[in-house]
C-alpha cells in the first residue's frame, strides 16, 4: 500500500477547485451523485492491483485531495472495460472520470514517471498524430526502449511467431493524406 494513502490530510492539502474542475467536464458531471456504495470497486477486474480503489479515487476527488489522486496509479491501471460505468447505480461515468484524471495528470505533468502506461499512451499519440495510423510493432518497441529495454528479449519469441504468421510488420503504416489530418488536429488546438 502506498504510504500516501494512509497519512493524515490537512486543510492545506485540499485544492478546493479540483472537484469542480473535474465535474465541469464531459463525463464528470454526475460525480456529485456518488453514494460511495463501492459497486465500481467490486466490479473492477483490476481493483486488486490498484493502490486506491475507484471508490476511493472518487471520494478523494470530491474532497479536493488532488495530490493523492494524481500520485495514484489507479487511473493508469484502468483497462477501460466500462464495467463500473454500466453497473453504477448513480449513473456516474466512472471510466470516463478515469480518462479525465489521466488527461489532467498529463497536462500538469503529475503522472507517475517511468510508469509504462502513460509512456505507451504518449508514444501512441505521437505516432497517430504524425502518420494517422498506429503500427503495433513500432509502438511496442518504443515503449520497451523507454521503460525496460531488456523486455524486448523476452518478447522476441512471440514477435518472431507473429512475423512468421504475417501478423506483424516492422514498417510504419500511414494514411495518404496526413496533411489533412494535421489540419484537423491543429485547428482543434487553436479552438
Amino acid at each position: 500500500m502506498r504510504k500516501g494513502s494512509t497519512h493524515c490530510r490537512y486543510a492545506e492539502d485540499v485544492n478546493p477547485a479540483f472537484p469542480a474542475e473535474i465535474m465541469a467536464q464531459p463525463g464528470g458531471e454526475a460525480l456529485r451523485d456518488c453514494i460511495q456504495c463501492g459497486t465500481c470497486s467490486g466490479a473492477c477486474p483490476v481493483a486488486v492491483h490498484m493502490d486506491l480503489t475507484p471508490r476511493r479515487i472518487i471520494a478523494l476527488t470530491r474532497a479536493g485531495l488532488e495530490a493523492d489522486v494524481m500520485a495514484s496509479s489507479t487511473p493508469w491501471l484502468c483497462a477501460s472495460c466500462y464495467e463500473c460505468q454500466v453497473r453504477c447505480p448513480r449513473e456516474i461515468k466512472v471510466t470516463d472520470v478515469m480518462y479525465l484524471l489521466k488527461r489532467r495528470a498529463i497536462e500538469k505533468g503529475t503522472y507517475p514517471k517511468r510508469f509504462p502506461v502513460p509512456v505507451l499512451a504518449k508514444a501512441f499519440y505521437n505516432m497517430v498524430a504524425a502518420h494517422g495510423r498506429n503500427s503495433e510493432a513500432r509502438v511496442v518497441i518504443e515503449l520497451a526502449l523507454r521503460t525496460n529495454p531488456f523486455s524486448l528479449l523476452k518478447m522476441a519469441p512471440i514477435g518472431l511467431k507473429l512475423i512468421k504468421t504475417g501478423r506483424m510488420a516492422l514498417g510504419q503504416e500511414r494514411i495518404k493524406d496526413p496533411k489533412q489530418l494535421r489540419a484537423v488536429l491543429d485547428a482543434m488546438e487553436e479552438s
Binding site: I106, L120, V128, G132, R133, K176, L181, S191
Partner: peptide, 25 residues
C-alpha cells in the same frame, strides 16, 4: 477511403476534444 487510426484508449488518455476529432475524420 484513407481512414485513420481511431485513437483507441491511448489518444483519449492524452486529449479529449482532439480524440473526438481524430475519430470524427
Amino acid at each position: 477511403p484513407d481512414w485513420n487510426c481511431c485513437g483507441a484508449t491511448s489518444y483519449m488518455s492524452i486529449s479529449g476534444d482532439k480524440a473526438v476529432a481524430l475519430a470524427a475524420r
